[in-house]
């Protein structure tokens, strides 16, 4: 192999393994450079067809209107319609409420659990870990149906609260605009806290124990250790989980449909459910549905940028 084309790794090889390049192998070098593309080409094509191309399509659709297949361009009509559409405003408000309350609540809880469960002196550590992670094995639909029954008017939560005298009479959780939202938030938090905890536990393995040792000698209490050491050390993974959770909650669909079906009225409807209803439940209006869906896209982009910025500033 000629000296120029020798890569760094090959220099370390024993001399007997290096050999002179024949003509055929020289064309092989060209092939070697291009062969990498063969590994990725199928995925690139598939993601283009099934992700990027539909995104462009949805963008074009957002300027069209009409029933079913009879679509025509209407300019910015759909975008204007958004601001005067009470169902859309309800969906946007509800989704924002879920996001603003549920994501921080879950991330703080998950961090808290992971710090407690990272203590090697803790008894029953394995049991607690598995117990808290257990909700992740359920399907979103299955656990939603279970939560719907648990919080039903004759459900076990009502019976429990009533028997122990916490409430004077049963609460119809799912028929009350406030409580229905609470149940949705509780449900998502129940399902996903353990999932995020696993990420933090994994990341905590990489944190050097001696840092805590040093902090303790300097007189830092548990809270100071948490905010001054743990949070900064886990910052990349906290950023990662908060972005994925934000994207997930912005798209929330399964839980809403199966716990409250958007009700009572539109008190719990989410943006995704509204898109689904516009496309497949009501008389289909694919154009307006696409406009609504672009609101999620815009929110995802804005929130991700903000989260990156916030994480960057604290450096």
């Amino acid at each position: 192999m000629s000296q120029q084309s020798t890569k760094k790794g090959e220099m370390d090889l024993p001399v007997r393994l290096r050999y002179k390049e024949t003509k055929r192998e020289k064309t092989g070098v060209f092939f070697k450079k291009k062969v990498g593309w063969l590994f990725i080409i199928i995925s690139v094509i598939a993601i283009t067809i099934f992700n990027f191309y539909p995104m462009v399509q949805a963008f074009l659709l957002s300027f069209q209107s009409g029933m079913g297949g009879n679509l025509e361009y209407v300019g910015l009509e759909n975008w204007k319609r958004l601001f005067g559409d009470p169902t859309f405003i309800a969906a946007l408000t509800n989704t924002s409420i879920y996001l603003l309350i549920q994501v921080p609540l879950m991330i703080v809880l998950a961090l808290f659990f992971s710090v407690l469960l990272n203590d090697p002196k803790l008894k029953f550590r394995g049991f607690f870990r598995i117990a808290i992670f257990l909700p992740c094995v359920t399907s979103l639909v299955a656990y939603s149906v279970i939560f719907k029954y648990l919080f039903g008017i004759d459900g076990i939560i009502n019976q429990f609260l009533l028997n122990f005298g916490f409430i004077p009479e049963t609460i119809n959780f799912l028929a009350d605009p406030f409580w229905a939202k609470v149940v949705i938030i509780l449900a998502i938090t129940w399902r996903w806290t353990g999932y995020n905890m696993i990420f933090y536990l994994a990341a905590l393995q990489n944190v050097d124990k001696s840092i805590y040792e040093a902090a303790r000698i300097d007189g830092a209490n548990a809270f100071q250790q948490f905010f001054q050491i743990t949070v900064p050390m886990l910052k990349p993974i906290i950023l990662f989980t908060s972005i994925t959770s934000t994207i997930g909650t912005l798209q929330i669909f399964d839980e809403i449909v199966n716990i409250t079906n958007g009700g009572p009225g539109n008190a719990t409807i989410s943006i995704s459910q509204y898109i689904y209803n516009l496309s497949f439940e009501y008389t289909p209006d694919f154009g307006y549905a696409s406009t609504v869906s672009y609101v999620i896209v815009i929110l995802v982009v804005i929130l991700s940028i903000i989260q990156f910025r916030v994480a960057g500033e604290r450096k």
């Binding site: 898109i275 696409s290 672009y294």
Partner: peptide
Amino acid sequence: SMMIPFAAIMVPLYRM
């Protein structure tokens, strides 16, 4: 593409 919400591409995919 990880940031693309599924709800946004569901309608075009369905039509496709």
